[in-house]
């Protein structure tokens, strides 16, 4: 019981800084959504049932630019490709949950929940409860803030409060302690290189993260194998 309480407390504390940043994006989504053809009910329903910052912001931007529903669906399907990778990487950490719970927990797979969940699973092994609390915290932050954003309009500036910094800084705090051993460091360096090259060659390319996530671990595997062969 104490372990469960401790897990809930840890999950909540670790997800709070990101939840604040998610809320800032939620406000932006809410504000932008009401400037398109989406009603307040549509705006809130999308947060309740889609629950994806990147997908929802792209939908709003495309609708505002007059895109067709078909092109919106194709663009979001491409955006969602990385969820397959996240799900596969998180599967082992969620494997202790029943199938029904896994189905529910899968709804919480996102960039931020993936980062916290995978860091936790690597340190402590499978922990569906931790992932559930993290996902629920993000979900509440997202739907509440998108509702407030849709109601109050553009009176909050995330840049002024440094909320845009919260994502990369939290990710850095999670990444640095994991950088141990040549294969891991090589993986991170290759991911950085791929991202920089792709961002300069094709700015804003939605495949950047997917390509870095798929290709860089192959270099890690190669370095690991070479180290083993040299032993």
């Amino acid at each position: 019981m104490n372990n469960k309480k401790q897990t809930i407390k840890t999950a909540f504390i670790e997800s709070l800084p990101l939840a604040i940043a998610i809320a800032a994006y939620g406000l932006s989504y809410g504000v932008l959504a009401t400037q398109t053809s989406l009603s307040l009910a549509n705006t809130l329903a999308m947060s309740l049932f889609v629950f994806s910052g990147s997908v929802q912001l792209v939908v709003v931007a495309m609708l505002a630019a007059g895109a067709t529903a078909t092109s919106v669906l194709i663009a979001t399907a491409l955006l969602n490709l990385r969820n397959l990778l996240y799900g596969a990487a998180l599967a082992e950490g969620l494997s202790h949950a029943t199938r029904k719970w896994r189905g529910l927990l899968s709804f919480g797979v996102s960039d931020e929940a993936f980062v916290l969940g995978s860091a936790r699973f690597q340190k402590h092994g499978p922990d569906p409860l931790y992932f559930g609390i993290v996902a629920a915290t993000f979900y509440l932050a997202w739907i509440t803030s998108s509702y407030i954003g849709a109601v109050i309009g553009g009176q909050v500036d995330p840049l002024k409060w440094g909320l845009d910094l919260a994502f990369p800084i939290t990710f850095t705090a999670l990444l640095i302690p994991s950088l141990r051993g040549k294969p891991v460091i090589a993986t991170a360096l290759v991911a950085v290189t791929i991202t920089v090259i792709l961002q300069y060659v094709t700015p804003g390319n939605e495949f950047t993260i997917i390509l870095a996530g798929v290709l860089s671990p192959l270099v890690g595997l190669y370095v690991s194998r070479r180290a083993r062969d040299n032993e």
Partner: peptide, 18 residues
């Protein structure tokens, strides 16, 4: 091992991407 390295790659890419 590959899936152990995937989070490292994605987190590093997300940081630089931002």
């Amino acid at each position: 091992l590959y899936f152990n390295y995937v989070p490292i790659a994605i987190i590093a890419a997300l940081i630089v991407n931002q």
